[in-house]
Design a protein around this nucleic acid. Sequence first.
DNA 1: CGTTGATGAGAAAACGTTTTCACGACAGAA
DNA 2: TTCTGTCGTGAAAACGTTTTCTCATCAACG
Lengths: 348, 348
Amino acid sequence: MASGIRGPDGGGAKLIDVARLANCSPATASRVLNGNPRVGQDERERVMRAAAELGYVPNGSARALRSTRSRLVGAIIPTLDHAIYATMVDGLQAKLAEKGVSVIISTSHYDLDLELEQTRLLVERGAESIVLVGSTHSAQTMSLLDQKQVDYVFTYTSSVAEAGAAIGFDNEKAGAAAARFLLDLGHKRLGMIAGITTNNDRAKGRLDGFLSELAARGLDPAAVPVVEGAYKVESGRQAMRSLMDVPQPPTAVFCGSDILATGAIKYCHEQGIAVPGEVSVVGFDNLEIAELTSPELTTLEVPAREMGNLAADYILAPAAQKRYLRQTELPIRIIVRDSTGAAPSQAH
Amino acid sequence: MASGIRGPDGGGAKLIDVARLANCSPATASRVLNGNPRVGQDERERVMRAAAELGYVPNGSARALRSTRSRLVGAIIPTLDHAIYATMVDGLQAKLAEKGVSVIISTSHYDLDLELEQTRLLVERGAESIVLVGSTHSAQTMSLLDQKQVDYVFTYTSSVAEAGAAIGFDNEKAGAAAARFLLDLGHKRLGMIAGITTNNDRAKGRLDGFLSELAARGLDPAAVPVVEGAYKVESGRQAMRSLMDVPQPPTAVFCGSDILATGAIKYCHEQGIAVPGEVSVVGFDNLEIAELTSPELTTLEVPAREMGNLAADYILAPAAQKRYLRQTELPIRIIVRDSTGAAPSQAH
DNA sequence: CGTTGATGAGAAAACGTTTTCACGACAGAA
DNA sequence: TTCTGTCGTGAAAACGTTTTCTCATCAACG
């Protein structure tokens, strides 16, 4: 009881215990542990040894409180159940972990009010930056971030806000690229299975880009059948049915996600509709499953991991460099496989 | 400059600002905001109004420091790139978020030393509980958790440590169930494509369970061909080749993951090997892709989301109840689809 | 030899909460 | 009336760091 020093068994040695054992002040111990160079060689070694001996683990809350740097980043994504988001977070986390920054994750389920709540919680936790998906967010969310001076990054989009960054791609260009690809194959009757566009600028962008490219090529966008569906195989299947079960079905269908495309192809199999013989199908995302369907899926590649990596780079960049990184538009490649082909010659 | 109160524009109103505006002490303001009932109705309302007006967001670091409760949980998984883990985390996060608890995520890439490092970081951040995958962890990791009194939960396993909890299933039983299923179909020549078993008690358990069930049924486990592969489609494909490209190939192959099984089936397609005509294939996980292969995949269902949910329940449970929840073994269902069938009649 | 500047170290304040303690008011019991 | 107990409130300590001062010491310089 004589000594106030808690042993390694005590549940938690504190900085002052390290200092005592190293025979120096807490200030010096702190400097050593934070790599501050203004400290002598012998002190440094004594402190390091003491810290190791006590199994010292700093208290992050105290550190964050005093230094106002939490080394915490928040990420709010719609769901982890979709590989496209999980992979982005994986890339984000991997890059940040290298620099000792941790990621708090939360899911919004495409609900902007929930997103606001999650944002508030992340700000409360001291997140220094927050990664968001897309560019559509509630005004309150944005003003909260603004007010609390929390840096933020939009992903999966290239449209940047006044502040913050956008690391992603242009969904409209992507939709247009899909249209162009199918038109160049000679298709005249096109359709689209889009993701739910409500509060989802990515799904909306792909749809808009697709339709305006068709318009630019002289087709009437109003005549193009469009069905929206949640990102589930089954909704892709049903959407395909409503698209195909008409007198003059489309000869090419662009899907806002590989999941939807997979469902669409599944429906074709069931109905004996030849892909790409009767109908070409284009997906979006280039998930692992795109290589598993038969025929293998033509799709647009989304650089999910790369967005995560680049978001991390932006977050870690010194303030001076941020302005050069804040708007990063990644190219979208089209991966041509076997689910697309030339338009069938007029059958009807 | 007269007032010390920072407006909502100031970047951050503090508790004392709220108190001033509400004309009370910080102590009272704190009590109100934490739902402490011992405070008058009128005070309560004044504080709530003041907090709302200032857009007050508490400082989590200060709160955690003083109260020693961070409301933070850590999760260390091998990778987010595998749906089985991403879904578990999704389930975990969803349940915890309901109670205002945040999840810090980090990935170990199946490396126990990396895991130790991540653990240290999570402890430093003040994580009150840590969710781990499997039951194989470095001694240092376990002693660190023990020493710092951090509660922990193993998942994807049913083997519990001295302390902490295990929420999962018995991988050996699962492997045995797969063996039994195939044996009952009349198969005599079995093979297995396992995940990498190094440092992976789940992969090892499935393999062990599979082999010992075969032994129990009179087959020689040493004669059963086993190939290990990383959880990639391509390694499943290659593994299947080395299994099938022999004089007397197995008539049934158990794969430690649907990903591997998918690769196996892909190889069979390429080689014109009939599934399940010539060889039956069983997967593991019941991923979404199990319904997308042709034939659709027979597989063992892993309750990933449920494990996440139950881990959250355990973490949130009051200490008194924890002992009843700490060992939860979930049943493993076998989902019979079309990739399995009776053993072919002797051909050779 | 006195002055200056750089260097290494410690004392103490500060970060923004929560919590303990103490106190006054007020109600009910004696 | 006086005592006892409950209730609502505030003052101040405490949480474990980092950071700002301040102060020696010592080398270099004029």
